[in-house]
Computed example of a mutant assay.
Amino acid sequence: MDPSLRSPNGFLSSLPDDDFELIRPYLRTVDLVQDSVLAEAGEKLPRIYFPHRGVISLVVNLARGERVQVAMIGRDSFFGSMSLLAGGDPVVLNSAAVLVPGAASVVEIDRVRAAAEQSPTFRSHVLRHALAIYVQSQQTAGCNAAHTVESRLARCLLQTHDLSGGNKLYITQESLAQMIGARRNSVSLVASTLQQADFIHYSRGHIEIIDLEGLKKTACECYGTVRSHYDKLVRPRGLP
C-alpha cells in the first residue's frame, strides 16, 4: 500500500505494510475538540491518538494550579508512546489536552502494545517517537528557563504551524500562556509586538501567521534544534 494513501498521520504512514496491518482493523476516527482533556496525569490511558489534523498539548500541572506545556504532538507522531513503554498499567505521565482542533485515528492501547510485542520494527518505531517527544520536552524546559517570552512564543507558533499544517491557528490566550510558561498579560504584550512587526495577525484566539521567515528570525535556537531531532528520528517524507 502506498504510505501516502494509508493515513494523514506520519507514524501510521511510516509503518511497513505488515506492521500497519497489526492495528489497521481496530483504528477509528474521532474529532479532536479544542480544549478537551484527553487524559490527566496519573490516570490509566485506554487508547492511543494518531492526529491527522490539530495539535495535542502535553502539560505539567503545578501545585498552585498553573499548567505549563512541555511538548506538542501533531500529525507527525502520536500521543501515548511513553505509556506504551511503561511496564504494568499504561499510566499517563503528563496531562494531555487538544491545543488546536482537528481529527485523529484512535485505537485501544492494548492493540498497539500487542503489535509492539509481536513486531521488532513496530517497537522500533514506537521507541523513536517516544525519544523524539522526550527530547522536545527537555529542550522546552531549557527554553522556558533561558529565553525571552518573545522568542519562546515565536518558537511555539512555528512548531504549531508545522504540526497542524496551516497558517491559521485557533488558540486561546490561556493556552498560549501555557505553551510558553508565562502570564497571560505577557502573552498579550508579546503577541501585539509580533503583530506590529507584521509577523502575525492576532485577534481573540485567532492567529494567522503572515511572515514565517520573520518568526524564524525572532524564535530562539530551540525551534531548529527540535526540528532537527525530529528530522533524524521520525519525520516521514512528505511532511514539511
Score class of each variant (00 low, 15 high):
210 I>W: 06
189 L>A: 07
193 T>Y: 00
203 S>N: 15
193 T>R: 00
206 H>T: 15
184 R>L: 09
204 R>E: 06
208 E>T: 13
193 T>P: 00
210 I>D: 11
197 A>E: 03
187 V>T: 03
186 S>A: 11
178 Q>V: 06
200 I>V: 06
183 R>C: 09
198 D>P: 13
210 I>Y: 09
194 L>C: 07
209 I>N: 08
199 F>P: 04
208 E>F: 05
190 V>S: 01
192 S>D: 11
176 L>T: 12
183 R>Q: 15
175 S>V: 09
197 A>N: 02
185 N>R: 06
178 Q>H: 12
198 D>T: 15
191 A>M: 04
195 Q>T: 00
210 I>H: 06
187 V>K: 01
199 F>R: 10
191 A>R: 03
176 L>N: 07
206 H>I: 13
195 Q>R: 01
174 E>K: 12
201 H>D: 08
204 R>H: 08
191 A>V: 02
198 D>Q: 14
193 T>N: 04
202 Y>K: 05
179 M>I: 15
189 L>G: 02
179 M>L: 15
204 R>G: 03
192 S>H: 09
203 S>C: 07
192 S>K: 14
190 V>Y: 00
195 Q>M: 01
182 A>S: 07
204 R>S: 03
203 S>V: 10
201 H>R: 14
177 A>R: 10
195 Q>V: 00
188 S>E: 13
193 T>F: 00
184 R>I: 14
201 H>V: 03
205 G>F: 00
178 Q>R: 15
194 L>E: 09
186 S>H: 04
191 A>N: 02
207 I>P: 09
194 L>D: 04
185 N>Y: 10
206 H>D: 14
197 A>V: 05
178 Q>L: 02
188 S>A: 14
200 I>T: 01
183 R>E: 14
196 Q>V: 09
183 R>F: 15
174 E>Q: 07
